[in-house]
């Protein structure tokens, strides 16, 4: 699982894939490489913005846990699940 996630992060970061994604403040996401567009919910938007800046999963989870006042584990778990979803689309 951890290995899979690490590979995923590497793939997503290859050729600055993540940082090229355009995310509006309303959660509209456009992938300039594929032309596909998406809607993110608020936590999805926050997560992706952290990841785009190159933050680690751990750090991103910390931010979310603080912002929503939820346990760190909960945040980390759902970020990992989100990452897998992201890997399918991007």
């Amino acid at each position: 699982m951890q290995k899979q996630l690490a590979e995923l992060m590497t793939t997503l970061n290859k050729n600055q894939r993540l940082s090229k994604l355009a995310i509006s403040e309303k959660g509209f996401l456009f992938d300039p490489e594929t032309g596909q567009s998406f809607t993110l919910n608020y936590s999805g938007m926050q997560t992706l913005n952290h990841l785009k800046r190159g933050e680690s999963l751990e750090d991103t989870a910390k931010h979310l846990a603080d912002e929503f006042k939820i346990p760190h584990d909960t945040a980390l778990n759902s970020i990992e699940a989100f990452l897998i979803q992201l890997g399918r689309y991007i």
Partner: peptide, 8 residues
Amino acid sequence: WEPPYIQP
């Protein structure tokens, strides 16, 4: 809190 998700 709602877990993050992305919808194509």
